[in-house]
Design a protein around this nucleic acid. Structure first.
Lengths: 234, 234
DNA sequence: TTTTGTGAAATGATTCACAGCC
DNA sequence: GGCTGTGAATCATTTCACAAAA
C-alpha cells in the first residue's frame, strides 16, 4: 500500500501512518474498552487494557503511540477518551452502509447477525442471484436482484460489500461491486478474488482456519509421541 | 510457541519448523493446486502457482522450501506431488473430527456448510445449551446437549472445536471443550477466549474485519479529498 | 512512585538476485 | 535456457529498558 502521499501540511492530523499489524489490533482494544466502560471503569493502565486484550503491555503502548499521545503518565488512559480516538482512527464516526450479496445459509446468518448494527455499520441492502429469493424479507431489508447493485451503491455512497455466495459466483459478484464503486470487500466465498488496485479485499475462510489449526494440532501430536516414547530408539 | 523441543534424531522428517506466516498461506496454495489439478495440469512453475495464489513467486518458493525440496529445476513442481506434501504438512492425511457448539443462526449455516467434509474434516457432533434445540437434526447429525461434550470427545479422540454461541456463553463452552481435551478451537463468538497454554485458539470476527476495512476506506477517502483539492490552502 | 511514550535491539518476514541443476 | 532453492539485504514487527511526566 503506497503511503508516501502525505499532504505537505500534515501537521496535527489524526496520524500519517499506522502499521498494518497495529490496525488489526485496534478492534480488539476497542472491544475491551467498551467492556471496561460497561463495567464502570473510567481509567485504565496499559497493563490492564493489554491484559483484557490478550497482548503485552509494551505492544499496546507502542500501538497506541501510533495514534497519538492520549495517556497520562503515572495514571493511565481515560477509557472514554481512548474509545473516541480509536473509533476515530478506525473511521467509525459515521455508520458505514454494508451491502450483502448472497442470502443462502451463511448470508442469512450474517444478515440476521446483530454485529453489523453493533458499532458503526448498518446492513443497508441485500442481494441474491437466485430469482426465487428476491423479495424475501430478512431483518429490516428485502432481498433484491443483484442487477440492482449499481443503483443501490450510487444511492448509498461509500460502502462495504460482503460476498456470501457460493464460490463459482463470487468473482462475478465482486466485479459488479467494484464497477458499482465499492472499494472495500469482505469475502466469505472460498476463492481468491481478483480486484484492481485501490480495492481492498479481506477474506474469511473457514476451511483455511481449520487447516491452520490442523497443522498445529498435528505438530503437537507428533511432539507428544516423541516425548512419550523418547527411548524407543538408539 | 515453544519450538526448541525437536527430537534429537530429527533427521529427514517432514520439517522441523515452518514460519507461522508460511503456514497461513499453505491452504491458499493447496486450493490453487486442487483447482489446477481439476483443470488437468500436471506440473506448474512457481510463477504460475504464485499467480494463481495471489502471491509473489519468490515468496512461494521460500514457503515451499520450508517443507522440503519438491520441485525440479528448469521444470517446476508436480501438481499431485505438491498436493500430497502440503496436505501432509497440514496434517490432512487423516480426517479430523469437528465438534460444533451453538446451532443458532450462524451455527446452522456452519453445520450445513459443505466446506467441512471438503478436505480432511468431518462434522462429527453438534451441541447446544438451549434445551429447545436438542434432538434437532442438521445434516447427518442430531443436536445434543452441551453436557455430553466430554463423552463425545472421549469417543472421537483428537478433534477441533468450533464455537458459534452468543458471546456470553462462549467462555463457558470453551472451558468445557478444553477440559474434555480439545486443544484446537475456532471461535466465532465476539469475545477473547482465555485458554491454558497448549491450547490453540483462532478467531473469526466479522466486526473486526469490517473495522479493518473501515480504517482503510477512511484513509482512502481522506487522501482522495486531499488530492482532489490540493491548493485549497497556502 | 507510578506509568506512559519511545529510542534502540532483537526477532521475524519479505524481497532480491543469483548459483546450481535440469 | 529455464526454473528452483537459498544466502544476503531489506523491511516490518515485537520486545526491551529507561528517561520523562504527572
Amino acid at each position: 500500500m503506497t503511503d508516501e502521499c502525505r499532504a505537505p501540511d500534515a501537521s496535527a492530523r489524526p496520524r500519517a501512518t499506522v502499521p498494518e499489524a497495529t490496525v488489526a489490533r485496534l478492534p480488539v482494544y476497542l472491544r475491551a474498552l467498551h467492556s471496561l466502560a460497561d463495567s464502570g471503569r473510567t481509567t485504565v493502565s496499559s497493563e490492564a487494557l493489554a491484559g483484557a486484550s490478550g497482548v503485552g503491555s509494551a505492544k499496546l503502548r507502542k500501538d497506541l503511540s501510533h495514534l497519538g499521545s492520549y495517556g497520562t503518565r503515572g495514571v493511565g488512559y481515560d477509557v472514554q477518551e481512548l474509545v473516541v480516538h480509536i473509533s476515530g482512527a478506525l473511521g467509525l464516526g459515521q455508520s458505514w452502509p454494508v451491502v450483502l450479496v448472497g442470502v443462502g445459509n451463511l448470508g442469512h446468518a450474517l444478515a440476521g447477525y446483530g454485529g453489523f448494527d453493533d458499532r458503526g455499520f448498518s446492513m443497508a441492502a441485500l442481494f441474491d442471484l437466485d430469482a426465487a429469493r428476491i423479495g424475501e424479507r430478512i431483518g429490516e431489508q428485502v432481498v433484491r436482484h443483484v442487477d440492482e447493485i449499481d443503483d443501490a451503491v450510487r444511492t448509498l455512497g461509500p460502502c462495504i460489500g460482503v460476498i456470501a455466495t457460493p464460490a463459482p459466483a463470487a468473482q462475478g459478484v465482486c466485479d459488479r461491486l467494484v464497477s458499482a464503486g465499492v472499494r472495500s470487500i469482505l469475502n466469505f466465498a472460498p476463492v481468491l478474488l481478483r480486484v484492481p488496485a485501490g480495492v481492498d479485499v479481506r477474506k474469511v475462510d473457514l476451511s483455511h482456519e481449520l487447516q491452520i489449526l490442523s497443522f498445529h494440532q498435528q505438530r503437537r501430536s507428533a511432539l507428544t509421541l516423541v516425548e512419550d516414547a523418547p527411548r524407543a530408539r538408539a
